[in-house]
Amino acid sequence: MTVASKERKLTIARAMAEAIAQEMRIDERVFVMGEDIGPLGGVFGNTRGLYDEFGAERVRDTPISETAFMGAAVGAASDGMRPIVELMFVDFFGVCFDAIYNLMAKNTYFAGGEVQVPVVLMTSTGGGYSDAGQHSQCLHATFAHLPGMKVVAPSNAYDAKGLMTAAIRDNNPVIFMFHKALQGMGWLGTEKDAIVHVPEEAYEVPIGKAAVVREGSDVTIVGITSGVHHGLKAARRLAERGVSAEVLDLRSLVPLDRESIIASVRKTGRLIVVDEDYHSYGMSGEIISSVVEQGVPLRAAPQRVAYPDIPIPFTRPMEQWALPSADKIVTAFEKMTSH
């Protein structure tokens, strides 16, 4: 098959690095900074090769001084540069949040649109490998809650490259969250379905557009990153019982593609939201409200499969029990149809 021979399967890590390299080649203003992103290529592999190609001036290892380099990203971006900044784990942002939610996210507004802050923040999310409560969170809602920042989070390498390209070209701050289990690093285990064909040339995946990754008519399963893969597995299991599940990959949390969610639920009448972030005050509640507010006719009360409201435990039995899974989605569907 000619199509198959053209397949170029990449991990999310490689797709991210490729997008960054391509933008750095055409735009001198783009540079990368963060911890261990230089010669090491990033703890999660998403800056591999950049240091060799672009050198120490444009690919900068920083001291462990996040307050300073997050603030520096704001200043550099406002002065005409286009920084891409990595902070390894989303759990670490507590030490530098002011520069993000009070400056990066608000300066454009404070300046009446006259100042641009084109920063891309990259950070890893997610658990499942027993890294405990300061290295396993998702914190989707923490970022999505704050106005002024776009938030994207791919479930596969194709979207990762396109979203990264779009993020770098965007004139606003964009938080790019990548899930560790999808990154394609063997030492973290890898979701094989995240490794997909990626075109060589640069392209954009539009920020704020969800994708229907599986069509169906009986229930809509909405997720992001790992949640999409749990949703797809659950959909395959439900199909064996003759249930047709539609799976929606949000890809962006901000802007949120409410239209696509509502269109899908209008068709299916049932909604399950999957989120590895905490249950309360989060993405799952937001999506369900968005559907309910529009008066979409429902055949059952919407369900959420999210992380319980507890710090993430270290020990395997507790953590695995608490994580979202295909099983839990199937159970949620059974609950919706049991009466």
Binding site: I64, D91, F92, A132, G133, P313, T315
Partner: peptide
């Protein structure tokens, strides 16, 4: 089992640790 190797707490000897630099 909640904490693991980066979250060792032993209040009997007033020891604690954390993974954030």
């Amino acid at each position: 089992g909640r904490g693991g190797h980066m979250h060792i707490f032993d209040p009997k000897v007033n020891f604690s640790c954390s993974g954030i630099i």
